[in-house]
């Protein structure tokens, strides 16, 4: 795929994001689009957002569960960028009807870093050493691809289907919690819709952060002190509409709640 085409898809996705429109899957329009092409498209989309004045505040890791990996027929996660325009505080009203197209909610553990992490060779121990705290987190994913008909290249190009996110009520030292067995309870409108545990994210959320540090390290990119890293959902995606409210509790970490308008 040539540079012009990459820029053009990045621009189209940016228009979709701003105008709440969808497009046909890129993989339908371009049968030979590679994962590398897709990341370059996502960088163009990101550049347009930075041109608008948005600031990068972290990264998200996606496709971390076995179920989603099987659905997309890939065996590794993907990632996208988080900007200041995406973040909400615990208990907030999140305006999905004006900001998003076809939103779905995920429950995750967010890592806040206190030291840089530069791969390759980043181990889980280094991830824990570099982590200031972990927090409960809702990620509200969205797709600029029609009806979520995504292949791995489509979601990567579309900033890993990132929408908005919300950080919960407590920040916990990762030394004080077992991130593999910590349980998650996900409620919508007062009803438990799913439970899960840390291991749902590729065996451990720490594995996911190490993967990201090492994957980006190969391109000379660091995870930076102060960044927030969303480590991947511990429960299945769940569609939401304005008027819904959700709660999330993580054993040993805390809670998050959100109302959608």
């Amino acid at each position: 795929m040539d540079k012009d085409k990459i820029a053009s898809y990045g621009n189209t996705l940016y228009d979709c994001l701003r105008n709440r429109k969808t497009i046909a899957p890129i993989t339908e329009q371009e049968s030979d689009v590679t994962i590398e092409n897709a990341y370059h498209i996502s960088l163009q989309l990101l550049q347009r957002r930075l041109d608008d004045g948005e600031k990068i505040i972290g990264k998200k890791i996606g496709v971390t569960s076995k179920a989603v990996q099987n659905m997309l027929n890939v065996h590794q996660p993907d990632f996208g960028y988080l900007t200041d325009r995406m973040v909400y505080d615990n208990g907030a009203e999140m305006p999905i009807s004006s900001e998003l197209i076809q939103p779905k909610a995920e429950g995750e553990i967010a890592f806040i870093l206190k030291h840089d992490l530069a791969g390759p060779g980043v181990t889980n121990a280094e991830v824990l050493r570099a982590t200031e705290c972990v927090m409960p987190c809702f990620e509200i994913v969205d797709s600029r691809i029609r009806d979520w008909k995504i292949k791995i290249q489509d979601t990567i190009a579309d900033n890993a289907s990132c929408g908005l996110f919300l950080l919960g009520d407590r920040a916990v030292n990762p030394r004080n919690v077992d991130l593999v067995t910590c349980g998650m309870v996900h409620e919508k409108n007062g009803e438990i819709i799913a439970t899960g545990a840390g291991a749902a994210a590729s065996g451990s959320p720490v594995n996911c952060v190490a993967w990201l540090a090492n994957t980006l390290g190969a391109f000379g990119i660091k995870l930076q002190a102060g960044e927030v890293i969303l480590s991947g959902s511990l429960v299945p995606l769940h569609g939401i509409v304005p008027g819904d409210s959700m709660n999330l509790s993580i054993g040993g970490i805390g809670k998050a709640s959100v109302r959608f308008t």
């Binding site: 998650m184 309870v185 438990i192 439970t195 291991a199 749902a200 065996g203 054993g251």
Partner: peptide
């Protein structure tokens, strides 16, 4: 291999 996950609230 991880086959099932959950939390007590189930």
């Amino acid at each position: 291999e991880i086959v099932e996950l959950g939390a007590g609230a189930a």
